Measured scan of single mutants.
Amino acid sequence: MAEAPPRRLGLGPPPGDAPRAELVALTAVQSEQGEAGGGGSPRRLGLLGSPLPPGAPLPGPGSGSGSACGQRSSAAHKRYRRLQNWVYNVLERPRGWAFVYHVFIFLLVFSCLVLSVLSTIQEHQELANECLLILEFVMIVVFGLEYIVRVWSAGCCCRYRGWQGRFRFARKPFCVIDFIVFVASVAVIAAGTQGNIFATSALRSMRFLQILRMVRMDRRGGTWKLLGSVVYAHSKELITAWYIGFLVLIFASFLVYLAEKDANSDFSSYADSLWWGTITLTTIGYGDKTPHTWLGRVLAAGFALLGISFFALPAGILGSGFALKVQEQHRQKHFEKRRMPAANLIQAAWRLYSTDMSRAYLTATWYYYDSILPSFRELALLFEHVQRARNGGLRPLEVRRAPVPDGAPSRYPPVATCHRPGSTSFCPGESSRMGIKDRIRMGSSQRRTGPSKQHLAPPTMPTSPSSEQVGEATSPTKVQKSWSFNDRTRFRASLRLKPRTSAEDAPSEEVA
Rank of each mutant, 00 (worst) to 15 (best):
G307V: 01
V248E: 04
V230G: 01
T283A: 02
G316A: 04
E92G: 12
F335S: 14
W163S: 08
V142D: 10
S253F: 05
Y160C: 04
L258R: 09
A300D: 01
K333Q: 04
G222V: 02
L313R: 15
L227Q: 00
M1R: 02
G321A: 06
A241P: 06
L227M: 06
S269A: 07
L47F: 09
T240N: 15
L226M: 01
F322V: 11
Y80N: 13
L305S: 00
G319D: 13
V256F: 02
P291R: 01
L48P: 09
W276G: 02
W275G: 01
G64R: 15
L306P: 15
K261R: 07
V151D: 04
Q122L: 07
I105K: 04
Q329P: 14
A342T: 07
Y147S: 09
Q329H: 09
N196I: 06
Q84P: 14
D272Y: 08
P291L: 03
G192V: 12
I279V: 09
N264T: 07
R213P: 04
L226R: 01
R297T: 09
K337N: 04
K289N: 06
E22G: 12
Y147H: 10
G285C: 08
F310Y: 04
T293R: 02
P291T: 07
E237K: 02
T293A: 04
R338Q: 14
A315V: 09
G287R: 03
Y270N: 05
A342G: 10
G316R: 00
F246S: 10
F179I: 08
F335V: 11
P173H: 04
A323P: 11
L238P: 04
S229P: 03
F267S: 04
S119C: 09
G165A: 09
S320P: 12
I244N: 03
F169C: 03
M139K: 09
H330N: 09
H102L: 03
H334Q: 09
R150G: 04
R204L: 10
S273P: 00
F254I: 03
I244S: 07
N129S: 08
A241V: 03
G319A: 11
I317L: 09
A342P: 07
I279L: 03
Y160D: 10
A343D: 09
L226V: 01
W275C: 04
L295Q: 05
D288G: 03
S320F: 13
L212R: 01
L299R: 01
D272H: 06
L299P: 00
L247Q: 05
L274R: 00
T282S: 14
G96C: 08
K337M: 10
L274H: 05
I279T: 10
Y257N: 01
E260K: 03
Q84K: 13
P51T: 10
E328A: 13
H292P: 04
E92A: 14
P341A: 12
L227R: 00
T290P: 02
G221R: 08
T293K: 01
Q327L: 08
S268C: 12
S273T: 07
N264I: 05
A342S: 09
W275R: 04
R331G: 00
W276L: 01
T278S: 01
E146A: 04
G302D: 01
H234P: 07
H334L: 12
R339W: 05
T193I: 13
S201C: 11
L281V: 02
E336Q: 12
L247R: 06
A241G: 04
S185W: 09
G49V: 12
Q332H: 14
W276C: 04
K337E: 11
F169V: 08
A304P: 01
G287V: 03
P94T: 10
G165S: 01
E260V: 03
D266E: 11
L281S: 05
S265C: 13
W152L: 02
W276S: 04
D272A: 08
Y160S: 05
I105R: 03
L318V: 13
H102R: 07
T282K: 11
L324V: 15
T280R: 07
